[in-house]
């Protein structure tokens, strides 16, 4: 924009300037963006195309070309027949495990974090900021250092290797970023509202449920998006805190694709990869701008 106005200032006004769409600058700009988009879209294209080909065509053809003969066999096989170890019921097992892990983890972590954020803004007590600082530092500390102590805690509680153990772990590690997110959002709600409710006699939970919750639905959606994709995509905690029968989808996918036995079926592998990526992709495309707003708000305002 600045370039255009600069050029205009230099040559001076000569009547109404015809609007040119195809300036050199625009060609450069859109050209670069298109090339960049190609790099970003290429893997998705390759994934879809490979997963729709039969194995002979994969061996013969070009990974970038669309299938000559479309087949959904790889998808069926990836979903229901692919083997990991002794289980040959496909990725469906991992999918349902991931669902059972993700749903309670998301609800629990958002419930805890939103109350935390609310308490940190409106009900500060002595030391609350200290705990919050530890929490934020905790989000940067490599998980590896806390892996084993958590194994011990879960074992003591009888939850090691169970889905609920993993749910707790996800809730704990989701807490820092979500608390930060809610704390920042609640701080933008005018304090007068809170004070008025106090005057009217509302207590801690009354204000939370009647004022804070209804006023901050967008941030709850943002938190939901962050948590669903984050927990669905987790690998490390799934490997460490569950056993093979309960492995989440990502772990099972890796075991299917990177297993050394058997002939490599690339089309099935790509169908399985796509299936695993489908849930976060759907969340992403449906949520659109909220996803962007979420990550930008969570990161920049902190």
């Amino acid at each position: 924009m600045a370039d255009v106005s600069m050029a205009a200032a230099m040559t001076g006004p000569r009547g109404a300037k015809p609007k040119k769409r195809l300036t050199g600058r625009n060609i450069m700009l859109y050209g670069t963006l298109l090339v960049v988009c190609l790099y970003y879209l290429l893997p998705l294209w390759v994934m879809v195309m490979t997963s729709l080909k039969g194995m002979p065509e994969v061996r013969m053809g070009n990974i970038f070309s669309p299938p000559v003969e479309i087949t959904f066999q790889p998808w069926v096989k990836a979903w229901a027949e692919a083997c990991t170890g002794l289980n040959c019921d496909g990725l469906s097992r991992g999918f349902w495990n991931s669902v059972v892990i993700t749903v309670p983890s998301v609800i629990l972590s958002i419930a805890i974090a939103s109350v935390n954020g609310y308490a940190l803004i409106n009900w500060k007590f002595k030391g609350s900021d200290v705990f919050f600082t530890i929490l934020i530092f905790g989000s940067f500390i490599p998980y590896q250092i806390m892996l084993y102590p958590i194994v011990i805690l879960l074992r003591e509680a009888g939850l090691y290797g169970s889905l609920w153990g993993l749910v707790l772990v996800h809730s704990v590690f989701g807490m820092p970023i979500l608390t930060l997110l809610f704390r920042n959002y609640f701080s933008s709600i005018p304090e007068e509202l809170f004070k008025a409710a106090r005057v009217d006699g509302a207590g801690f939970w009354g204000i939370y449920f009647r004022i804070m919750l209804p006023m901050s639905l967008p941030i709850f959606v943002v938190a939901l998006i962050l948590q669903v994709t984050g927990i669905w995509n987790d690998f490390l905690f799934g490997v460490v805190y569950t056993k093979p029968d309960l492995y989440p989808m990502t772990v099972q996918l890796n075991n299917i694709v990177n297993s050394v036995q058997g002939v490599k079926e690339y089309n099935v592998n790509m169908a399985a990869t796509l299936l695993t990526g489908l849930v976060p992709l759907v969340v992403y495309f449906v949520s659109g701008k909220l996803f962007v707003r979420g990550i930008a708000a969570g990161a920049v305002k902190g």
């Binding site: 669905w232 987790d234 690998f235 890796n254 990869t273 695993t276 992709l281 996803f291």
Partner: peptide
């Protein structure tokens, strides 16, 4: 941004 929604495994 869509790759950011995908896991490192994928």
């Amino acid at each position: 941004l869509y790759p950011f929604a995908l896991s490192f495994i994928v």
